[in-house]
Design a protein around this nucleic acid. Structure first.
Length: 290
DNA sequence: AATCGTTCCTGATAGC
DNA sequence: TGCTATCAGGAACGAT
């Protein structure tokens, strides 16, 4: 019986991927105006395709922000258009006459003066969505439901307090967008390996030195992800279709069956909390001594 | 308030 | 080789 076969990984856009896209979209689309929208999957529009298209018609894209894995197009003071890529979403900027991109679900035609661009929302799995927010109160409430941003407003003190308040496994707490913004399955696995912490260890049981190490590890892996423009193991692409390169630098994510680069033990993969969990059984023991 | 289970989807793969 | 069943997963939602 084969027990050590390599299972496929399914990378998904997390903070470094969405931030990479945000920067490129801001560069490409600021000042462009929505003139038309086409879709083959109305269900991805919230509250509805009709309502979204009516509201954004002739509106100009101001700032493009990001909170956690959510992209926020600021159209005017009381109107925001949100995109969530979930697992397989892509936002591609093309000229209207460029060849079709497979799995394009919606296409937004944008104009600035006589220049025309097309923003294509590509999403094979159809989990992603486009959401219209029509008031300041509503957007503020939504953004307030997210935890602080690593690399921005998450402090070690706040991080420590958050972990102390939960008995859940550390991996699940880190991925909880209400606790901390932007961390998904790739970076959580790599950060926990870097900090030598077992994914199942209850958050409140982490020692202060582990909390500090983990805080640093999170910053480090997210910065690496950003540096390489995200991870394109499978679906993720930047706005012109380019791949990111972080997949060449995964620490443990997707490396089950390979040797741990620190101790030589075989990287393990277990199912946990509904997703693949990669770790080194030797250097990430649950009750590791200092 | 915190936590847990279910659901949405379809491409890729395992297993025969 | 070709078919079919299973797996993958972020987060909204409802239940506890």
């Amino acid at each position: 019986m084969v027990t050590n076969y390599k299972l496929q990984t399914k990378e998904m856009p997390e903070l470094p991927e969405v931030e990479t896209i945000r920067r490129q979209l801001a560069e490409e689309l600021t000042g462009y105006r929505f003139v038309d929208v086409k879709t083959e999957w109305e269900k991805s529009f919230r509250p509805s395709f009709k309502e979204v298209t009516a509201a954004i018609k002739d509106k100009t894209i101001g700032k493009i922000d990001r909170q956690a894995k959510l992209l926020i197009f600021r159209l005017d003071n009381n109107l925001d258009l949100l995109f969530h890529l979930k697992m397989t979403g892509r936002l591609l900027v093309r000229k209207p006459d460029e060849p079709t991109d497979e799995y394009t679900r919606s296409a937004f035609t944008l104009k600035k003066g006589s220049d025309i661009k097309e923003l294509r929302f590509v999403d094979s799995r159809k989990f992603g969505f486009v959401k219209l927010i029509k008031s300041k109160e509503e957007i503020n409430k939504l953004l307030a439901s997210y935890g602080p941003e690593p690399l921005k407003d998450l402090t070690l003190a706040k991080f420590s307090e958050t972990l102390k308040s939960s008995s859940r496994p550390i991996k699940l707490v880190l991925m909880d967008q209400g606790k901390i913004s932007g961390i998904g399955n790739i970076y959580v696995n790599d950060a926990l390996w870097l900090a030598k912490i077992n994914p199942k260890k209850p958050a409140k049981k982490l020692r202060p030195d582990e909390v500090k190490e983990l805080f640093g590890a999170i910053e480090k892996v997210l910065k690496e992800g950003l540096k390489y423009g995200g991870a394109s193991d499978q679906w993720y692409r930047q706005v012109h279709g380019e791949e990111g390169k972080y997949q060449e630098h995964f620490l443990v994510y997707g490396r089950n069956g390979e040797k741990c680069s620190r101790c030589g033990e075989t990287i393990n993969r277990i199912g946990f909390g509904g997703r693949g969990t990669f770790f080194c059984p030797k250097c990430q023991k649950e009750n590791r001594e200092r």
